[in-house]
């Protein structure tokens, strides 16, 4: 894992450049088949956090018809494989986003939609939105633009499917599991003790 910067920001470019981490083509035959199925069928929990959310519904309509790619929307995080965080994320929303993410079952992937998830976008100096989503949740696919068109979102899905099918990058959920302390620390910077139930700690008493 490349060095984290002082605020804990992972330099995505370094990840991509680093041979060791970016490409892992060591799938066994079985794992290949498994990954093929995972790429072929994606259940999406579309969390409309910001204004970019308005670009999500069109991909399910007859004009864009993302169901062709095996992508379906679901209502509950338990069944979802993919979490779309669509745009800026206020602190209050972030808590719910993290909660939903933690309730999803592995393997799970996060798509950050819009510039706001990358660097804060036009909310770069806002007092109550997060700037870099990657500090709090491991993002597997960024789609930039403000706001990105549905075509861009579909492109993102295709790229993500390609990544999953060929194991092109380490899935975010593994990072989240292994570097949980890092993400926890960042989350706690915002929420303090009043954070979501953690992986290790017991639920009791955490939700005052």
């Amino acid at each position: 894992m490349p060095e984290n910067t002082q605020e804990g920001f992972i330099d995505q470019q370094k990840v991509l450049d680093n041979e060791e981490y970016s490409i892992k083509n060591t799938q066994s035959i079985i794992q290949k088949a498994v990954d093929w199925f995972r790429a072929r069928s994606m259940f999406v929990l579309a969390y409309g956090t910001g204004c970019g959310a308005i670009e999500m519904p069109p991909i399910f309509t007859s004009r864009y018809d993302i169901e062709r790619l095996g992508v379906v929307g679901v209502a509950t995080p338990r069944q979802a494989d993919i979490l779309i965080v669509s745009g800026y994320c206020s602190y209050k929303t972030l808590k719910r986003v993290i909660r939903s993410y933690e309730q999803m079952n592995e393997p799970k992937y996060v798509i950050g939609l819009g510039s706001c998830t990358i660097n804060g976008g036009m909310y770069w100096d806002s007092y109550n939105t997060i700037k870099k989503l990657d500090e709090y949740l491991p993002v597997d696919m960024y789609i930039n633009g403000c706001m990105p068109r549905p075509e861009a979102l579909i492109e993102g899905f295709v790229k993500l499917q390609d990544n999953i099918r060929n194991a092109k990058s380490e899935a975010g959920y593994i990072q989240y599991r292994e570097n949980n302390a890092f993400y926890r620390a960042n989350q706690e910077k915002i929420f303090g003790k009043n954070t979501t139930p953690t992986f290790e700690e017991n639920f009791a008493g955490m939700n005052q």
Binding site: F37, S41, G70, N105, E106, P107
Partner: peptide, 13 residues
């Protein structure tokens, strides 16, 4: 495919 994928999830609650 959906059902196979669900069978292959790493964990289930």
């Amino acid at each position: 495919f959906d059902s196979i994928k669900l069978f292959l999830k790493e964990n289930s609650t």
